[in-house]
Design a binder for these strands. Structure first.
Length: 972
RNA sequence: GCGCGCGUGGUGAAAUGGCAGACACGCCAGACUUAGGAUCUGGUCCCGUAAGGGGUGGAGGUUCAAGUCCUCUCGUGCGCACCA
């Protein structure tokens, strides 16, 4: 296609200019701004008093620099924050808009292993590619603050924060993290090694031997959060449970705060909900059950203590530690008697069942399948009625939640009912449902029955009375439980932050801050070992060191921790580092942190944290939860000044591949033109047609093969399907993927249409938060719009070069145009604040359409319009700004720091408004009346209208509704 | 199964309870052109020659007035999934 305007010259020109001028530099408190910088001239007054203007922190989720380069999904969110950043800069804010690289992680290492390259090398290469691609899109990043999580100068502080966690315990009385030295030691504890162990058990970063998710294919353990349907999130490999010694972070201590503080941030409700569900708070009670013939007690957690009288058996998770103690006979041998004490067919031994359960993947343990379990031979005593109930083990009870044991109330729990029916266990109704509902299997709230002292109480009251009773008798207590588990924080990987931890005599010690960063050894072979032994074990010199025990001063052979941190570590605090990226003394300077993370202007008094954070929903739970957790620990120490990191969060919607047409036979469809499909042109090969036939649930007959070139006929300019005219065609969009062949490369879009068109299109597609398909024709549409805007000012000469149009003149604005201009100022300003970029662009299109039709074009008006368009299409507008300034004969200043236009409300006042006349709610006519006409007068005019009279057909109006300046509705 | 969101032209979408379909794609017609995958102008929800009527997944409801609010229902997307 012919170029609409010379973007190929304009874009590199201004990118170079911005680079050289350092236009987008954000200034920290205490920094001196060079007089030559446009920021200085814009904020002369403030800088004279050594003050900075109000800040605005617009943050993108920094990318993982993958080998395949930028994807069109990246620029979507980046453009949104860039528009806001440029807008805020013009509004006079000191804008922090940074970018960096989340460069540790599995894919980099896997790629490196496969191609026999060091991950550092491939990472550097990928970062270079990404950065080049981003620069070509004209984002206003302050590149002086670029950070990379794999840079020792950065991960030094990641390790430092880890040590903070390591050297802390959670004081539940003050609900805060405190230094481990302040942990109260039990009086009777005097032995130094006991004390050390006691402390180790309370650290926010601790070592656990619990069963973890081991992924043999990846050669590492994974966090619960990284497992989807029993498979690894990365690669989809099977995962098995096995006990391993791992580092955990005590995120559960913060569960309550992580829920509550969501009330104070401006996030999408859906994301708040996801986090709340993930944390999974539930209120209930713990109940202690005595075991018959033993002095042991089993504690269960229940949200329905009111159903305690209906507990007819108890179930323990297979991994429950008490099993060996309570069922010595049944543990290794089969139980000869069933739970009723009768002889029965032999069942598995407890040990055998445990073994079988451990092998099962999570998927095999899913709901809906037949429940399995074995009787342990032991009985527990129900504290409310002293009934002896059999104790079973079953894998439908999870070891990681609550106490790993439940009281089973089959009458009022779906799973317990299923289990009871399978094993013929008693079912006792204890809740009477509202009328008309089946009582057995009823799980809602009703009235207590067959329940002694709580009979007749509604469920809510019954719960309270039961808990009071339990607490009185010291056999139970009020309890809140969370689904959230502690965060498995170690990985058996090379390409991650090494732990600043040393092991000596089976004890771990944290490094001193002075020893950071701890840099990993340069291995020749950093491939996973295929066993739980991390790759770092291969670096003998690095691993084995002499160490002095800081407590005992004992010197000896020690070993470094061989695990590395997960990829999430670096992204947990990068937004803080951006505020002070080159600070070598601190993870971030406190004055700087306060400036950027807190409100600094009165009108933003509620804004705490990053002002705007835009990214994909894929991080709705993990990254955002982890980062909030770290932030809160830092907050407890006063190292950051806000309880939450991100004030306003927005999720951009996924961009799907271009719509594919799917064809059916037999339904009531018609042959359609295929020009919407870009790949069909004269050069198209049969393979090039992205056209598939597929089966539709409605039963339309399927063509059953991929369409070929023969199926398409050329009619004039268009291609038409040569299929039966009774064919139905359906359009569908899919996620972009290499295998589907529908990935759009931003580079090729920039090449063909320019960066401004790509930016504009991604914003024009629809609401930012919505999922939407790519459409190359749509890019052409906004590209044409930019061309029209360019041609408002420029004219093409015979030789193809451009010159200022003679229609552009130094004249006052036409009043009609002025009104549209001010409407556009208002609409664009409001829409940017609301991130409604699509409608802002629509308004600017309306303006350009109007302006195109005028003969003489006022420079002043055009300049204002160019300012409005600038955040969206920065290159084109800088060029036009320069040209218009020349025409006007004014001093050329960079548009980046030009003040944002304000609209004149007086110009928007209407003198006449169009009133809609309705009869019985139906539009019948319209009339023009002076603005703010009285209701009585409007009514009179409406009734006098001939169309209205006609529609009333002589009836007397029963009622007349008058909405001032809007409509009159006559009910007749 | 549970939770949340979304259903508007051929397509992407607009619409503080007040004229449904702004803006754009596509399509149709015209102008200018050696040419047009450039540009410009006009048209384009459905039925109807028209008057008029119908129309925001479906069925009800509230209201003078519903795409918008309520109830039910169907479809679809996302998330969680034996969490006691």
């Amino acid at each position: 296609m012919r170029r609409q305007y010379p973007f190929h010259e304009i874009e590199p020109k201004w990118q170079k200019f911005w680079d050289e001028q350092d236009s987008f530099r954000a200034w920290n408190p205490g920094e001196s701004v060079p007089e030559s910088h446009p920021f200085a001239s814009r904020h002369k007054d403030l800088l004279n008093t050594h003050n900075l203007p109000p800040k605005f922190y617009a943050l993108d989720m920094f990318p993982y620099p993958s080998g395949s380069g930028l994807h069109v999904g990246h620029p979507e969110g980046y453009t949104a924050t860039d528009i806001v950043s440029r807008y805020k800069r013009m509004r006079g804010f000191n804008v922090l808009h940074p970018m960096g690289w989340d460069a540790f992680g599995l894919p980099a290492e896997q790629f490196a292993v496969k191609n026999n390259l060091h991950p550092r090398v491939t990472t550097e290469k990928n970062v270079h590619t990404f950065k080049g691609q981003l620069k070509k899109l004209g984002f206003s990043y302050d590149w002086s603050r670029e950070i990379n999580t794999t840079d020792p100068a950065y991960y030094k502080w990641t390790q430092w924060i880890f040590l903070k966690l390591y050297n802390s315990w959670f004081d539940s009385s003050s609900n805060k993290a405190r230094p481990i030295e302040e942990l109260p030691i039990p009086n009777q504890m005097t032995d130094a090694s006991d004390i050390q162990k006691f402390r180790d058990d309370h650290r926010l970063a601790y070592v656990s031997e619990a069963p973890v998710n081991w992924c043999p294919a990846l050669g590492t353990v994974l966090a619960n959060e990284e497992i989807i349907e029993g498979k690894s999130e990365v690669g989809g490999h099977p995962v098995e449970r096995r006990p391993m010694r791992q580092w955990m972070l005590r995120i559960t201590a913060y569960a309550d705060r992580l829920i509550h503080d969501l009330d104070h941030v401006n996030w999408p409700e859906g994301i708040k909900m996801l986090q709340k569900n993930w944390i999974g708070r539930s209120e209930g009670a713990e109940v202690d059950f005595k075991i018959v013939g033993s002095d042991k007690i089993i504690t269960v957690f229940t949200t329905r203590p009111d159903t305690l009288f209906g507990a007819t058996y108890m179930v323990l998770a297979p991994e429950h530690g008490i099993l060996r103690d309570i069922s010595p006979t049944a543990y290794d041998a089969t139980v000869p008697l069933n739970w009723k004490g009768q002889e029965s067919t032999p069942q598995l031994s407890v040990a055998a069942y445990q073994k079988a359960a451990a092998k099962k993947s999570d998927q095999d343990r899913q709901l809906g399948k037949v429940k399995s379990g074995v009787f342990t031979g032991a009985y527990a005593v129900n504290p409310v009625n002293n009934a002896q109930i059999p104790i079973w083990i079953a894998d439908y009870v999870l070891s990681g939640y609550g106490t790993g044991a439940i009281m089973a109330v089959p009458a009022h729990d779906e799973r317990d009912l299923q289990f009871a029916q399978t094993f013929d266990l008693p079912i006792i109704q204890v809740v009477e449902p509202p009328a008309g509902q089946e009582s057995i299997g009823f799980i809602g709230y009703g009235t207590a029955v067959n329940s002694g002292f709580i009979d007749g109480l509604p469920t809510g009251d019954a719960k309270i009375k039961m808990i009071d009773w339990l607490e009185n008798k010291s056999v139970g207590r009020r309890m809140i439980n969370f689904k959230l588990r502690d965060w498995l924080f170690s990985r058996q990987r090379y390409w991650g932050e090494p732990f600043p931890i040393i092991w000596m005599n089976e004890r771990h010690f944290g490094l001193d801050d002075a020893d950071l960063p701890l840099i990993p050894p340069d291995l020749v072979d950093y491939k996973p070992t295929g066993t739980p032994e991390p790759p770092l074990s291969k670096a003998g010199d690095w691993v084995n060191i002499k160490f002095t025990n800081p407590y005992t001063r004992e010197v000896g052979e020690a070993r470094r921790e061989l695990n590395t941190m997960p990829q999430w570590a670096g992204s947990c605090w990068y937004y803080l580092r951006f505020t002070d990226a080159s600070n070598s003394k601190n993870f971030v300077g406190s004055e700087v942190e306060r400036y950027w993370m807190n409100s600094s202007s009165p009108d933003q008094s509620k804004v705490k944290g990053v002002d705007l954070y835009v990214g994909g929903t894929e991080h709705a739970v993990l990254h955002l939860l982890y980062a909030r957790f770290w932030h809160k620990v830092l907050f407890d120490y006063g190292l950051v000044s806000t309880p939450e990191p991100f004030y306003r969060l927005v999720n951009q919607g996924l961009i799907l591949g271009e719509t594919e047409l799917h064809v059916f036979e037999g339904a009531n469809g018609k042959a359609i033109s295929l020009t919407q499909l870009r790949d069909i042109d004269e050069e198209a090969t049969p393979e090039g047609l992205r056209l598939f036939a597929f089966e539709k649930a409605s039963g339309a007959k399927v063509i059953g093969r991929r369409l070929a070139a023969e199926d398409v006929e050329k009619k004039g300019e268009h291609f038409v399907l040569k299929v039966d005219p009774s064919i139905a065609v359906d359009g569908r969009s899919f996620k972009m993927s290499k295998s589907r062949g529908n990935v759009i490369n931003p580079d090729s879009v920039v090449e063909e249409f320019g960066a401004d068109a790509l930016r504009l299109f991604e914003m024009f597609m629809g609401p930012l938060e919505q999922v939407k398909p790519w459409n190359t024709k749509g890019v052409e549409g906004v590209y044409r719009f930019l061309g029209r805007a360019w041609r408002l000012i420029m004219e093409e000469k015979q030789d193809g070069s451009w010159d200022v149009s003679a229609k552009v003149q130094n004249v006052p604005a036409d009043p009609r145009i002025l009104k549209i201009l001010h409407e556009t100022i208002r609409k664009v300003s409001e829409d940017i604040e609301n991130l409604a970029f699509n409608t802002a662009i629509s308004q600017m299109m309306i303006f350009v359409n109007e302006m195109t039709a005028t003969e003489v074009k006022s420079v002043e008006v055009l300049k204002t319009f160019v300012q409005l368009l600038n955040p969206f299409a920065p290159h084109l507008t800088e060029e036009l700004w320069e040209i218009l300034n020349k025409v006007e004969g004014t001093h050329v200043a960079v548009l980046v720091y030009a003040p944002w236009p304000s609209y004149d409300a007086a110009l928007l006042v209407e003198f006449e408004v169009e009133i809609v006349l309705q009869v019985n709610g139906k539009l019948r006519d319209k009339m023009k009346v002076p603005v703010d006409l009285s209701s009585a007068e409007m009514e009179r005019l409406a009734l006098a209208n001939p169309r209205v009279a006609e529609m009333l057909a002589g009836r007397t109006p029963k009622k007349v509704i008058v909405v001032p300046n809007k409509l009159v509705n006559i009910v007749g």
